[in-house]
Amino acid sequence: MAVPLVEPVPDEPAAIARLESGSGDSEGESERALLIADYHAGIEAGLRYERGVDVPSRAADRRDHLLSILEQTDPDRLVVLGDLMHSIGDPGGAERGELEVLFESLPPTLEVTLVKGNHDGDIESWLPDLEVVPGSGVRLGSVGVCHGHTWPAREVLEAEVICVGHEHPCVRLEDEVGGSRVERAWLRGPLAGKGFAERASYEGVGWLEGERSPPNLVVCPAFNDLAGGTWINVTGQSFLAPFLPDGLADGEAYLLDGTRLGSYDAI
Rank of each mutant, 00 (worst) to 15 (best):
D25N: 13
S26V: 15
E27D: 10
S30H: 04
R32K: 15
D38W: 13
Y39M: 15
Y39W: 15
H40T: 03
I43M: 10
I43Y: 04
I43K: 12
E44R: 10
A45Q: 12
G46N: 06
L47M: 15
L47S: 00
Y49D: 00
Y49W: 00
E50T: 04
G52P: 05
V53N: 02
V53R: 14
P56K: 01
P56S: 06
S57D: 05
R58I: 15
R58P: 01
R58D: 12
A59P: 05
A60N: 13
R63V: 06
D64V: 03
D64S: 12
H65Q: 14
L67H: 07
L67C: 06
S68C: 05
L70K: 09
L70G: 07
E71P: 00
T73A: 02
P75W: 01
P75C: 03
R77Q: 11
R77I: 06
V79P: 03
V80E: 09
L81T: 04
G82S: 07
G82E: 06
G82F: 03
D83P: 08
D83F: 02
D83H: 08
L84H: 03
L84P: 08
I88P: 00
G89W: 00
D90G: 06
P91R: 02
G93A: 12
G93S: 11
G93N: 12
E95S: 06
E95P: 06
E95Q: 13
R96G: 14
R96K: 14
E98R: 05
E98T: 06
L99W: 11
E100H: 14
L102P: 08
L102H: 05
F103Y: 12
E104M: 12
E104G: 14
S105N: 08
S105E: 12
L106R: 05
L106V: 13
P107R: 07
P108L: 12
P108G: 01
T109C: 04
L110V: 10
V112A: 05
T113A: 03
T113E: 02
L114G: 08
K116D: 01
G117I: 06
N118V: 13
N118Y: 04
G121W: 12
G121E: 02
G121N: 12
D122M: 08
D122L: 13
S125E: 10
L127E: 01
L127K: 00
L127M: 08
P128W: 02
L130P: 04
E131L: 12
V133D: 03
G135W: 13
S136E: 15
L140N: 01
G141N: 05
G141E: 01
V145W: 08
C146K: 00
H149L: 01
T150M: 14
T150F: 00
